[in-house]
Design a protein around this nucleic acid. Structure first.
Lengths: 154, 154
DNA sequence: ATCAGCCTTCCAATCGTTGGAAGGTCAACT
DNA sequence: AGTTGACCTTCCAACGATTGGAAGGCTGAT
């Protein structure tokens, strides 16, 4: 990771977003795929359907990705793994990509999604509880008929 | 929910599993679908591919579901919502359905899956953190360019 | 010069889900 | 007894998301 002095940058006629977008740790699609865990082919697909912004290109047409692009891809990957639809993910990613949206809107939307996520955490923890319960009751030789127990317990 | 005296049951020549399976709160596929949130058609599909055990039938062929069956369906629904594949879910459900498996195996497998689930919880919490970060930085008029910030921050 | 990596478009296949159609039985209510 | 809605079956189509291959071509580093 590069450490940048913003006064040095402005002396070059550059601003931070530009730098973030084009200069910091630039890489081809292959490396971005490797780091983010998102298939290169899928990255192109995501770009084509507007999930992620169009990557900038080198003079010869190669896509160029910054660390922050990779971060977005990682976020998408994560969200997908956690069962979000591409439609939902488009919204989520759009949230912090869309610089023209009013702050209040973004905040509201973000917090709304936080609620969603927290519910998922609860559901996961409920599943964890179920599995732990199962494991706990498997010390002896005879395993109890867990489904019935669960059925009676709740 | 029915409260049952097991001595009363045995006086009828019944045991608890049988009771759980066939007598406690029996319902048709429609009600089971409504309670569990799993489409009736999908329940039949799950049965056909072995995700859930074959439902018992009335004399006329209607499928009959117990509370514990509904619990299983809810579990499947949850797992699906949280991004597990049907293959994974088959294993998970099989875990506490399979009475012939050795206790130690079940315990090990269950705890292995708990690890998986806990990683997902962490990923969710990371996403929550990201969104909260976004929301927190949206009080002022000008929203910072979050992707860059995220990119620099991590 | 070679070879991996990138570009494009198109097409096929998988998985999970949902819906419809067709043809039939069953249970409950008037 | 008749009607209505819920259930039974099988089959077929479609969608969303992902992955892979094929074909044909350019780029960049050794």
């Amino acid at each position: 990771m590069l450490l940048l002095d913003r006064y040095f940058l402005s002396s070059l006629g550059l601003d931070l977003p530009t730098v973030g977008r084009f200069i910091i740790d630039p890489m081809n699609i292959g490396e971005a795929a490797k780091i983010s865990g998102v298939n290169a082919k899928l990255i192109r697909h995501y770009e084509s359907i507007g999930i992620i912004p169009k990557a900038s290109r080198t003079g010869s047409g190669y896509r160029v990705y910054s660390d922050s692009d990779v971060h977005t891809l990682t976020f998408v990957k994560r969200a997908r793994r956690l069962g979000f639809s591409m439609k939902e993910i488009k919204k989520l990613v759009g949230l912090w990509r869309n610089r023209s949206r009013a702050s209040a809107d973004v905040k509201a939307l973000a917090l709304e999604h936080v609620g969603d996520l927290e519910q998922k955490v609860e559901e996961l923890q409920s599943m964890i509880k179920t599995l732990r319960h199962l494991a706990r009751n498997c010390r002896g030789d005879q395993r109890p008929d867990c489904p019935i127990i669960e059925g009676l317990a709740q």
